[in-house]
Simulated scan of single mutants.
Amino acid sequence: MRIRLCLAALSLAGGAGLATLSAPTAAAATCTDIDVVAARGTFEPGTLGTVVGDPVYAALQKKLTGKSLSSYKVDYPADLSLTSAAQGNLNLVSHVMSQASTCPNQRFILVGYSQGANVVDNSIGISSAGALVGSPIVATIPAALAPRVTAVLLFGNPIRAQGKSVTGTYQSRTIDFCAKGDPVCVNGGDDVLAHLGYSADADAAATFAAGRV
């Protein structure tokens, strides 16, 4: 089933013709030390996402034993519609702003897989327009809150197939995994199964984040 869904995603080049969107209401979590905000991939099941979000959160719990953690699943369709990534972009930014206001000492780790990486990219000011299931930027985390985003963990990031990457403010806090042959993040890649193997990078991603908390 995952292979079929991945192939469906590969058939779409998203980005154009966005409708006017309103931001969904982001539910506030408790005031933990760190809020892990995860945007799942297209049609990905699981609490935060079976391929990336769930294993990464479990790994972070092991690495950050001296910190209290909460998690937030970005509320967006994660489907093949042209507005999907934009809705995720709005919801992620809304959630971070709400949490930052409610919990002034809370920090954030952003996690994005596949289309979810587009959501995170847009939210930190790197446009995914023209990328697979991407969209133009519709909201960004305010500059005043940028220091509270301690790490950005990306997997199978579609903008990499365009020759793009995270630059600027968040560059040193970002790790961006792209498996060899993954057609979502490698231009000309032909190994669909490579896009489904990122749970193997969960420990490395958590280690990277722990070094920046």
Rank of each mutant, 00 (worst) to 15 (best):
A129K: 00
A59G: 03
L90M: 07
L69C: 07
P136H: 11
G15W: 00
A78S: 15
S94C: 02
G46L: 02
A39R: 07
G189N: 10
Y57H: 08
R4A: 10
K62N: 13
A161M: 00
E44P: 13
N122S: 05
A9Y: 10
T32F: 14
G181P: 04
T25H: 15
D121P: 12
S68F: 14
G53L: 03
M97G: 13
A202C: 09
A129D: 01
Y113P: 09
T83F: 04
A100D: 11
L145T: 02
A179K: 12
A117L: 03
A205V: 05
G53P: 04
C103Q: 09
Q99R: 14
L193D: 13
L90I: 11
F108L: 05
G125D: 08
A209Y: 09
A28R: 14
Y76A: 07
G211N: 07
P45N: 10
C6R: 08
V52L: 12
T42L: 05
T47S: 15
R40C: 05
R173M: 05
I175N: 08
V56E: 00
K62E: 13
L132S: 05
L145M: 08
A205G: 13
V56H: 02
A206Q: 05
P147G: 14
L154K: 06
G156Y: 07
V184I: 15
L196D: 15
L10N: 00
N187T: 01
P45M: 02
H195L: 15
F155A: 09
V192Y: 08
S22F: 09
T174N: 06
D203Q: 09
S128M: 01
A144Q: 13
F108R: 07
G168A: 03
G134C: 00
G88A: 14
V192G: 11
D54P: 02
A58L: 08
G156I: 09
A38P: 02
G189E: 12
A100C: 12
D176P: 10
A27S: 14
S84A: 14
G49W: 07
Y113S: 08
A209T: 10
L92G: 08
C103M: 12
G88P: 12
A26H: 14
S101T: 14
E44K: 10
S135C: 06
A129Y: 00
D75R: 12
L48R: 01
L90D: 05
A146E: 13
V74Q: 02
